[in-house]
Each structure stands twice: as C-alpha cells, then as structure tokens.
Write a protein that binds this DNA or RNA. Sequence first.
RNA 1: GGGUUGUUAGCUCAGCUGGCUAGAGCACCUCGUUUACACCGAGGGGGUCGGGGGUUCAAGUCCCUCACAACCCACCA
Length: 872
Amino acid sequence: MVTLRYKLEISLLHNRGGTIPVMQLGKTYIPADYESDIYDLWEKNEAFAPTGGGEPFVMVMPPPNANAPLHIGHALNYSIMDVLARYNRAKGRDVLFLPGADHAGFETQVVYEKHLAKDGKSRFDFSREELYSQVWDFVDENKGVFQSQLRSFGASVDWGRFTFTLDPKVVKTAYGTFKKLWDDGLVYRGERLVNYCTQHRTGFADIEVVYEDQKTPLYYMKYGPFELATTRPETKFGDTAVAVHPDDERYKKYVGKTIEVEGIEGQFELRVVADEMVDPEFGTGVVKITPAHDFNDWEVAQRHNLEAVRVINHDGTLNHRAGKFEGMEVKEARKEVVKALKEKDLLVKVDENYQNRVGKCYKCGTAIEPMLLDQWFINMKKLAEPAIKTLKAGKINFYPESKCSETVRYLENVRDWNISRQIAWGIPIPAFQNIDDSDDWIFNENVDQEILEIDGKKYRRDPDVFDTWFSSGQWPFVTLDYPDGPDFKSYYPNTLMEMGTDILYQWGARMICLGLYVTGEIPFEDIYLHGMVRSEDGRKMSKSLGNVISPHTVIEEFGSDALRMGMIAGRSAGDSAAFAPAKVVAGRNFCNKLWNVARFIENTLAGKEVKPEAKAVTPADHWMLERLEKTSEALSSHLENYRLSEAYDTVYHFVWDDFADWYIEASKSEVNPGLLSFGLESVLKMAHPFAPFVTETIWQTLTWTGDSMLINQGWPEKVHFDSKKAEEFSEIQTIVAETRAIISALKLRKTKLFFTDVPFLRDHAELISGLAKIQGVHEVEDGKGLHLTTTNYTCWLDVDRETTEHYLTKLEKQLKSAENAAEGFKKRLDNEAYVKKAPKKLVDETKKQLEDSEQLIKNIEIEIERFSDHFA
RNA sequence: GGGUUGUUAGCUCAGCUGGCUAGAGCACCUCGUUUACACCGAGGGGGUCGGGGGUUCAAGUCCCUCACAACCCACCA
C-alpha cells in the first residue's frame, strides 16, 4: 500500500514550519500540487483493474493515434468514459476500462513523411520494409506523450491491458478475420475504380474522401458531330465512347453508331451509346465516357461493355496515351489541352461559373483521381445485412437515438470496402500472388517472406497493407483476446462504446458489422456518441485557423478536474458545442468549493474523535440526509441513462447549495460531528466521478480514513431520516430567506426577529439568527414590526414604520404574483377535465399549492392592511 | 436531390417518458470583509422557449407548416 498522506504532510508541514496539523489545508486548492501524486497513488495500488466481482461494465477506449498528442476532443471522450468508469466502480460493478493506441496507418505515415521532408527525403527513397521499421521507432519514441496525457486526464484505465493495434494478438485476429472473409467469399480482389491520392500514392475507401464545392470551368468542345461539355478535357485520351440519353430526340440517330472525331492528336473513332445516366438538360446532353478515370463513366462502361483506357499514372502525370502531353501533371495538362483545343478551333466556349463537387484527399487536399487499381474489397452488403437487422431490432442502444436510424440508412446504401492501402505503415495483407498466374492468389500469414514457394509454384506477397479501420473495426474483441482468452469470455460484448459522431460510419458501423460477423454477437450494448468540441467562435478547431485549445494548457491553468467538468457541463449526446472557458472556470471553482468544505469540516472536527455515521439529531440533519438521498438517487438515474451533464448539475448544486450554503452554515450553530463527517464522505463519493483528483486529495487528508483510497470506497449507503423533521428545516429556510430578503430590500442593519409564545421559534432561535445573520430571535410579550408572510408562524422583524413603508411596494408586487399563481391553480382545479383526467397525485399537489398561495395572499394582505392606515 | 440536428436569458448551453410560477454557468445590478472559501456570501434584474397552425385538461416538450443555421449522405459530365 502506497499512501500519499505522508507526502501531503511533508509538503504542508514544510510550508507551515512543522507545527500545524495535517488538516490545515491551504486556502485555495492548487491542482498541480497534487494531481500527479494522486494518479500515482491509484496506479501503484492497481485501483483501475477490474475487481472480478459484480456485473461487468466494460468500455474499450477508442484508441488515439499512438504518435500524436491528444486534443480537446479526446478530453471530452475520455472524461465521459472515466466518469462512467468511476461511478460504476463505486456502484460495485466489475469495471473494465481498457486503454489502447492505434497505429493509424495512413495518418501516421503522413506525419512521418513530413518528418522526412525536413531532411529533404521522401518515403519513396526507402523500401516499404525500411520505412516500416523507421516509423515503428518514430511511433515508439512518441507514444509516451499521449500516455502521460491520458494520466493527466485522470483516466482510470487498466494499463495492464493496454493494447496497440500492431500487437501480435491484433494482427493474428485481423488475419483470422481476413481468412474467414476469404473462405466465405466475402473478400475479393478486383480491378476497380478506386479513390486515389496521387500525392500520397495510395487508394482510399469511398468514405474517406472529402468533397468540396468549387468553381470548375466547364469546357464546351467540338467532338465529332457533337458539342459536349466537360470539366476534364485532359482525360479525353482515355475516352472510349460518347453517351446520350436514350430518349433524346436530338441524338437518337447516332446511338449505336461509330463516329469520327477530329481531336488534337488527329482523328479517331468512338461508339455512341445511350444511357439513362445522361441528363439531357445538362450541357449539351452529350457526355464523353472515360471509364478509367470517372466513377459514372466506369458504370456506363460496365453496362455497355466498353474498354477502360488509363491515361493518368499513379504519380498524377499523363501517360503515353496523351501523346505530346505525356509526363505533364493533370493540372498543367488541362491548361495545355485547352490551349491546343483553342488552336485547333475545337473549343466552343467556357463556362467559368460552373460549380461542382470535387473529391479531395482529406489529408493534403489533392484532388482525388479515380484510378483503376487491383485491390482487396470486402463485400459490405453481406456484412451489413445482419447489422441492419440487429439495429432495427433495437439490440444496440444509441445515444442519441437518432443515430441508430442514420446508421441503418448508411448500411442500407453501403458500398464495398476497399481495404488495400499502398503504404508501408500497417498490417501487411497476408495474400500472395502466383508469379505465373496473376489470378491465382493464396492466403498465407508468412508476411515476412516476400516470395513463397509452394508445390513448385512461386508466389509474391501483396505489398499492400490493410486499411487501419480494418483492424480497429475489430477493436471490441481483439482487445479481449478473442476467441479463447478469459477476458473475451467475461467481458464481451462490451457494455458501452463511447466515440465521436464523426467516425460513426467508418468505425462504429464497421465494428457492428465485423463484430457480428466474427463473434456472432453485438460488439457493445450501448453506443454513446459525442459531438465535436468546436472552438469558442463556434468554428471547427483547426491548426490552420489557429483556434486550437490544448487540453494540456487548460489543465495547467485550471486543473484536470476543471477541464473534465468544463467538458461535461451542459453538453448533450451527439451535439457539437463550443468549448466554454466559463464552464471550466465553474469547474475550477467547484473544486475549490469542495476544498473549502473540507477545510471547514476538518477544522471543526479537529481534536475530536471522529466516527462518521448517518445519525440525524437536528432538523438540519434530517433535511441534509433527505437531500443526500434524493441527490444520490437522481445522480444514479442520470448516470445510468448517460445523462452526464444533468448528473454533474445535480451533484454540483447539492454540494454548493444544499451542503455548503445551508448545512454547513447550520453547523455553525449546532454541530453533529458524526453526521458532518459522514456528509463530507458522501459528498466526496458522489463528486468523485466528476472531480476525481480533488476529492481523492481531500480524502487523503482526512484523519479518520486510514490508508484507504476514495476511488474504491463505493457509493454512499442508503440513509434514514425523518421527513417531518426535514420539513421543519425547510420552514426554517423559509423564515431565513424572507428575513434576508427584507433586510436586503430595506437595507436594514442589526435587526431582530420577535415572536410571542411559538415553541418552534424558541427552539431554533439561535439557528435562525445565525443563518439570517440577524442580532437575535427573541420572545417578547408583544410588539410591532414587519410581519413575515411566507411562514405560518407569527413573527416580525423589529422595524419601524417609516422604514417599513418602503417595503409596501415590494409586498404589493409579491401579492400580485401570488394572486396570479393562485388564479392559475384555481383555473386548473375548476377545469373538470383536469381533475378527472390528470393523475390524482398531481391534482392533490395543485390543491395544496392553491391552499398555500391563498394563505400567502392572506398574510400579505394583512400585512399591507396594517400599514395602509399610515398611508391614508 | 435525400437525410439528421438545431433555433430557450447579453454569451455558451441544459430541460429525460407532455404536468409545480422555464433552469445552469458566465456576464450584469445592489449590499456585505459573518475566522471554510472574494475561485466567497446575501439579495436582485433579465426569456410571450424562431414564426404560424393543430392535438390535449395541460406543450419549450407531441403533430403539421414556414423561415433560418449546421452537419451528413448521393453518380451531375
């Protein structure tokens, strides 16, 4: 057992010259003084590992990029998860919160390429093997950064189960899945049109392409007997047909014919086909068909059996088909081709204002080239079927719910998934191609071999790697040692997956598909989606806009707990909201409030023998226990429904308003040491999921908690109290509140409250006078003054008439609002339908409210009358 | 073109299955140094819940419609 008490003691004793006892905490909580020690305390005592007892609560962390620092979105992600982990741990569930990191293939390689570029090098200077081992070292060097950040967030993850997506067990399972897909005929290799970035020289899945609206000149050119419009004149060397709409009368006579076209490079012949794809209204109603470089054209080509002719090389230059334009990059070639068309008088006009959507590489913004490539594709229709069924049956709970049908819609229209990537950093695809027979592919896991010899045949390894999402799509079970590990048996399916809405399709949907396919079970029961954390100005945070807020900076200034609460406060599932510094400040202040609550209690109890127990004596005691019980219940209900923001709000106001502003204030008049310490413990337990560091720090300073840690203290036990007694304190609050309001409105000083023969007031005189900050509550024979109206006890403030008159306006205002309220209640009760149809409980409540407000009106009226003669 | 979400106090946002006189944080105004806390305490101002219609005893909450905004999906050369 490592205990921190010693450390705290040392630092405090040091500050105070060695004479002050340990509970003398500084006035202000300074997070940086304690956070890392507290995290060490938890980690060294293995407080994060599952206990093995209780119903499992399993969350596998969305793995961040191993080489990149965490951003504010991660802070939100992991804060939400950690609140739930800590809450469920306290509730006695067997919590597994499993951390990991993603090799993030393409992302990471891009970062490494930038690194190389600094030395004037490029990835193409190295073999894929060399590059792989370099990136490995690079990532290895950087991965400490995000791990220490995760610790600074206070994430209570089980480090012993940390998983990296290139760990052997992940690779093994990924290969197993690939083999299964292969055997089931769900993965196929084929020459398809693939989204390709000529800058990074790799293909992408459809989903990874970002589209941008932009102005692209639309060129109208002469094309044999036609005039047609195109945005891509440079691909004309790959044209293998011209298409028109089947019903287009203008061109009917050409359909099926071969036409002669006079081009820049001389004459050539093309077929004219009729296809529904053509919109007769667009341009001239004639489209040139370039199957090798356009998705639409590719489909037309399939339907009409047209040849696909490649014109663009992988590096983005034109090939020999382009004649004198060979070697030019697409952009340049376009200019030159247009120029040549002009010279030959083939260009009719240019529409400069044409708007279209252009696919871009999400990393470098280079225009995506549809490229004809041999790649591995997963038949997603087949994988999606069971997923759609499962989702429609409501087997997975979505938060927010609307994302479920969105996912179904996505899966219903899903296209096959290209999983080949032409990069080095990733899991090598375990497939080998027969050198002599390009159609002969075999599955083999010996990827460290470039050439295999089997039965006298030579096979060459596919040089490509898997799309990162192929392995991370299996995250919920690869992390649990699928298929035979004990973790898989105990902790699958996961309870909750928490992730950003932005990757719902490329990650969430695929996890569901692959989870069902591989394990036959849903990967997780619940999925909670958080929105983006936008910048304060409401825009997206991005390096280029310079509006990125680093979690590190926030933690340094306000503390980890403050960041966490700032992220969670007022944020609902699925919605993107701006980062709100004010909420972080509020969180920081809340920590300080907790700190000072503890300071007060520790000072009050100093020197006493403390035995925390929920034993109520005074009305305030009963009232506090009632509030505690209600808060605990509300908190549980909110957290079990993943309403983090409301849960936080609940505990925040219990601590601040109920416990600090009322109960502690009341304790200054009458102390119940056992209950005060019990209250503090309960407050710490309930606040702990939201503010783990400050609550644990305080726990470590308590003299009576021994060597224990708050993190595994469990939830406050159920308490008993007397509602009637609690109600008495509410009455005291009412008296105090009105007294304070009058004092403030009339700017009174040194006021006294008088009463005649009211035992209740006699009993609580000291408490009331303490809470209301008045000079005393006294019993008198009789006297005059300003009567309180909100309480049924007769009492009055010692105020002279002159001063009181100013209060009349206020009273009249109150009368009006009370009358309005009463009228509302009356109207409701006069409504037969309401009395009949609304729940009885509600009707009774309304009756009581009406009574109360009528009493209030009477009181105010009496009070007004008492002074009206003065005005007359 | 299709879909989703949003429009609530000056700002950033909560408000779960319709049910107390609509909330929070920050900001604002007045008072206050009461030995836990000025990262504080007390009191207070501020919203006809985007517009319009409907269902209901009852609507910020459900339905329809309009306006505006954001995001996602889709094969417009």
